[in-house]
Design a protein around this nucleic acid. Structure first.
Lengths: 333, 333
DNA sequence: TCTTGATGCGACAAATTTTGTCGCTATAAA
DNA sequence: TTTATAGCGACAAAATTTGTCGCATCAAGA
C-alpha cells in the first residue's frame, strides 16, 4: 500500500470543492484510514506538486493552510464520459431545468457543465446542433414558480435531512405578517411548482400539516431532535391530504365514450395496465379501466369538454350531469 | 511533464467504461498529445499495476489487450461530492425517473449510483431517512409509457445527433404492418410520455412530419447526410403543429371569475408575469392575464368545471357556452 | 508447414523520485 | 518573552520508475 499514484488519487478525492476546505492533518488521518500510512510532510509535498497542474487552491491566509478544488474547475472524472452519455446528461439537464427547485438545480450544475465540456471536446460542432435539434416540451401549463427564500429553503432541507427541530418565521396564506413557529419537520413533498414541508407544530402535537416552502421567511435550525408521531407514514399522509394520487385506496371501474381524435393517444399511452379500448360503430372509442378516484383524473376528464361521455361509475356520470347544469346556469345570459 | 501520478490519472481518464475499450497503443498516442511522452511498455506496466487496485478490466482474449473500466465500478471522482450535493443528485434522480426516456435514464444511472454511495458512506443512517422523507409527486395524470424498441431509439438519437439519413421500418397508427421508409431526421421533441422524431420523408420533400418514436421498429443509419429544408425552424414547427405551446403568436387578454378555493393557488403561482387578481365581493377571484391561445390552457380551464366563469375574450366565453349546451345534450336522459 | 509481424512480458541497470527525519523559521497565542 | 504550531528546505537512503532488449506466443498468410 505504498503506491504514490493511488495515494494521490485518494487524496484528490478527499479534497472538497471551494469554499469548503481540508487540511494536511485531516488528509493524513483520512488516508491512514484507507491504508496509506505516510508522513504529513509527504502530503504537503504532494499537494504543492499537484497544485501546479490541477485547479487546486491553497488558502494560505491562515495556518494550517486550507486546500480545496477551485470552484470552477472540472476536477477529475474517470472513466471517461462517452459522447452518448454526455448527450444524455445534457438531455437530463433540459428535463430538470424547468421542474427542479432552482437552488438545487444550481448545486448540481457542475455535472452538466462537465457533460457539455465533453461534448464540446469530442464534437464541437455537433453540440450546438444538438441544442438546435432537441426540445423537451412542457406537458402541461406551467405556472410561475413562487419566490423562495434561498437560505430558508436550504435550512429546511438540512433540518429535514438531519431530523432536527426548527424555529421559523412563517406567513399564513392571505396574511401579510409572519409569526414565529416551533416546528418538527417530518418530510418534504415536491409537487409541480410547489414544495411542501410536512411537519408537526408545537401548538398541535397530534396532526401533521403541510406548509408550502415559499411561505417561510427565516429558518433557524435547533439542536434538538424532532418528535415524530408514532406510525407516521408519509405516503399515507400525502394521500389523505390529496397531495398525491398514487396511493389512493378507492378504486372504481371507469367507462366512457371518447371522441376518436381527442383520445386516440390512449391507444398508445394507456391510463394503466387494466385499460381496454373498443372502437364503436359511430367512430367513438369506448375506454374502460380500473382507476383510483382522484381529483386529477376528474380534472383530466373535464378537460375533454364535450369530447367525452362518462358511462360508469354512475356517481361520476352524475357529477358530469350536474356540471352540465351548472355550466348552463353560468352561461345562460 | 514526467510526473507518473499525473500521467496515470490522465490515462485513467482516457479509459472508457465497458463494453467500450482502449488499447495501450491508443493510450500512448493520446497521452503524447497531452504532453506525456512515454514508452508503450510503461503504459502496459501502469495498467497492470492499477488493475490490482481499481475496477479495471483487461480483455486478454485478443491481442492487443483491450482495457476498460468495469461497468459496475464507481471509478474516480474529484473533487469529493459533499453530502448536500449528493442529496440534490438523489433528488434529481427522483424527478427524472418518471419522465425521462427509460433507455436514457439507465445510461446515466452511474451518476446517481455514485451520489447514493457518497450518502451511504458519509451518513449511512440518514440516506434511508431521506428516502423515507422526500417525495416527488407527479403533477398530473401519468400515462403508461409506450413500449420503445431500444436499439431503434438509440439509433434515432444517434442519427439526429450526427445529421445522417436513415432507413426505417415504421408502423402507421392503426396499421398492423410496417413499411420501409427513407427518412431525414431533423430533430427530436420529447413531450410527456411521447417522444417524436421530426423529419422529412423521401416521398414528400416539402413538409416535415413528426413521428412518435414508439412506432419505429427497426432503424438503419445510412452514410449520407440529411437534406434540410431551407429556413427550417424547430420551434416554429412544433408551434404550428401544436406540439409546443410556448411560442404561440396569438395573444389575448384573458379574464375570468374563479371559485376562491379552486384557484387560490394562483395567488402564489401565477400564470405569468402579467396576471392580476382581485377578490370580488361575492368571494370569487377575478383573474386577468395576457395569455397565448393554446389547447393546453383551454383544457386546464375546462378542468375547473363550473368553478370558473370565463369573461374574456368573448370567443372563449362563447366556446364555454357551446360546451355547456353540448354537455346538456350528452347527459340529457 | 514455415514465415512474418505484432504483441506481451521478464529482466536489468541507470536515472529519478519518493520519503522520513531533522532543524530552522515565522507566526500567533499565552 | 515564551510556547506551540505549522510550513519548509535539506539530505541521504530506499524505492520506484523507465527505456531497452531479447525472448515467447500467437495468428494470419504464403
Amino acid at each position: 500500500m505504498s503506491n504514490p499514484t493511488l495515494r494521490q488519487i485518494s487524496m484528490l478525492e478527499l479534497i472538497p470543492r471551494a469554499p469548503l476546505k481540508t487540511y494536511s492533518r485531516e488528509l493524513k488521518e483520512k488516508l491512514s484510514e484507507r491504508g496509506y500510512e505516510v508522513d504529513e510532510r509527504t502530503i504537503q509535498r504532494d499537494l504543492v506538486s499537484l497544485e501546479r497542474v490541477l485547479p487546486l487552491i491553497c488558502d494560505d491566509r491562515d495556518k494550517p493552510y486550507g486546500w480545496s478544488w477551485a470552484e470552477t474547475g472540472l476536477g477529475i472524472q474517470a472513466p471517461a464520459m462517452d459522447p452518448v452519455e454526455a448527450l444524455t446528461l445534457s438531455l437530463a439537464e433540459q428535463y430538470l431545468e424547468p421542474i427542479m427547485p432552482n437552488a438545487s438545480f444550481k448545486r448540481i450544475g457542475y455535472f452538466f457543465k462537465r457533460a457539455n465540456s465533453v461534448l464540446k471536446e469530442t464534437s464541437p460542432r455537433l453540440i450546438s446542433r444538438w441544442r438546435d435539434r432537441v426540445r423537451v416540451l412542457p406537458e402541461m401549463l406551467r405556472f410561475k414558480n413562487p419566490i423562495l427564500n434561498k437560505s430558508a429553503e436550504q435550512a429546511l432541507y438540512k433540518a429535514t435531512f438531519e431530523g432536527l427541530q426548527i424555529k421559523a418565521l412563517y406567513r399564513k396564506r392571505g396574511d401579510n405578517y409572519s409569526s414565529l413557529r416551533h416546528i418538527h419537520p417530518l418530510g418534504l413533498v415536491m409537487k409541480g411548482s410547489i414544495n411542501y414541508l410536512i411537519c408537526m407544530m408545537n401548538e398541535d402535537k397530534e396532526n401533521p400539516r403541510y406548509l408550502p416552502l415559499h411561505r417561510f421567511e427565516r429558518v433557524e435550525i435547533l439542536d434538538e431532535k424532532i418528535c415524530e408521531p408514532k406510525d407516521f407514514d408519509l405516503d399515507e399522509f400525502t394521500h389523505v391530504n390529496n397531495l398525491s394520487f398514487e396511493y389512493s385506496k378507492k378504486l372504481y371501474t371507469f367507462k366512457a365514450l371518447f371522441d376518436f381524435t381527442a383520445a386516440a393517444h390512449l391507444m398508445e399511452t394507456p391510463l394503466n395496465g387494466t385499460q381496454k379500448i373498443k372502437k364503436q360503430p359511430d367512430g367513438r372509442l369506448l375506454v374502460s379501466a380500473r382507476m383510483t378516484d382522484t381529483l386529477q383524473f376528474e380534472q383530466w376528464l373535464k378537460g375533454f369538454g364535450s369530447d367525452v361521455e362518462i358511462l360508469a361509475p354512475i356517481e361520476l356520470r352524475a357529477k358530469f350531469k350536474k356540471l352540465a347544469k351548472d355550466l348552463i346556469k353560468k352561461y345562460d345570459d
